[in-house]
């Protein structure tokens, strides 16, 4: 498409305006982290700090609880991602490729959770994990949410598109379904695994209410829980709070930037296609 000069200028202005307004809150968060206590909400208003100081960032990085929360959350998120991909991919393969008795029933069973709002089972889920003695363990954050109807559905859709001929050739050669799954399907699953893996990672990283309900041990405090507590304990230290929020967002923003192509295309697949 060729464009006239005014059109190009118009596009450029629009791109700049949109980028600025979308990114403004994030930029403001990062900038405010560089301001001192007296500066951060000073009147008259000031956009940039008098002096860019690292105090807030270094203070929060030196806080052992913050670093611990980041570390524990990274570990939990990685295990959660691996576990949910395993559980959901196995089921996805079975539903995409195998014929078995009662398939229809289990298919509906595995998809129904998509329509159950979290709030309807929040309290009774809490009772279950408390009866199982899972409170204040990493397991309570990892296991209950691992099975995901949406993720299973997404991967199954992907497997449905695989050519059946390859699988039949392998069956004729005497391969078992497990061998086919491991040798044919898994090596070609990088794209859906990245998209769904990142979705799992984000869901774990950004979770707030469930950790607040189930974790009281300070050693296991999750990063968003830490920020929430920080806000209620020291709500007026905005510079420090913004520095902490910036640092806590960096891992997810970094993931987006690294895997942008997969994620942006993934939305298309996971939409309604």
């Amino acid at each position: 498409m060729t464009k006239s000069v005014p059109q190009r200028v118009f596009s450029a202005v629009l791109i700049t305006l949109i980028s600025l307004s979308v990114m403004f809150p994030l930029a403001w968060m990062a900038i405010s982290g560089f301001k001192g206590k007296t500066e951060v909400l000073r009147s008259p208003f000031q956009f940039f700090p008098d002096m860019w100081r690292w105090d807030n960032y270094s203070a929060i990085l030196a806080d052992p609880q913050f670093m611990r929360a980041m570390g524990v959350t990274v570990v939990g998120a990685l295990i959660f991602t691996a576990l949910s991909l395993t559980v959901n991919t196995l089921a996805a393969y079975a539903f995409a490729r195998l014929e078995f008795t009662g398939k229809r029933f289990w298919w509906v069973y595995c998809l129904t959770p998509m329509f159950i709002p979290a709030m309807a089972i929040l309290l009774t889920s809490f009772m279950v994990v408390s009866d199982l003695g899972m409170l204040d363990t990493l397991a309570v954050l990892i296991i209950p949410g691992a099975a995901s109807a949406g993720q299973m559905f997404f991967i199954r859709q992907f497997y449905l598109g695989f050519p059946i001929a390859v699988e039949e050739a392998a069956l004729v050669d005497g391969a078992t379904r497990w061998q086919i799954f491991v040798r044919v399907f898994l090596p070609q699953s990088a794209a859906p695994f990245v998209v769904m893996g990142i979705a799992s990672y984000l869901a774990y990283w950004n979770a707030y209410v469930w950790p607040v309900l189930t974790i009281t041990d300070p050693d296991l405090t999750q990063i968003m829980q830490f920020l929430g507590n920080f806000r209620s304990d020291r709500g007026n230290d905005w510079g420090l709070l913004m520095a902490g929020s910036t640092l806590a967002s960096l891992p997810t923003i970094g993931l987006l930037l690294i895997f942008q192509r997969f994620i942006v295309n993934g939305v298309r697949i996971s939409g309604i296609k």
Partner: peptide, 24 residues
């Protein structure tokens, strides 16, 4: 094979979704 493959998902959903829902 199919039942082994869907078992983890079925069990997890049973314990952490359907049982809490029934209990609610």
């Amino acid at each position: 094979t199919a039942y082994l493959m869907i078992a983890p998902m079925v069990v997890l959903l049973g314990i952490f979704v359907f049982w809490p829902l029934a209990n609610s």
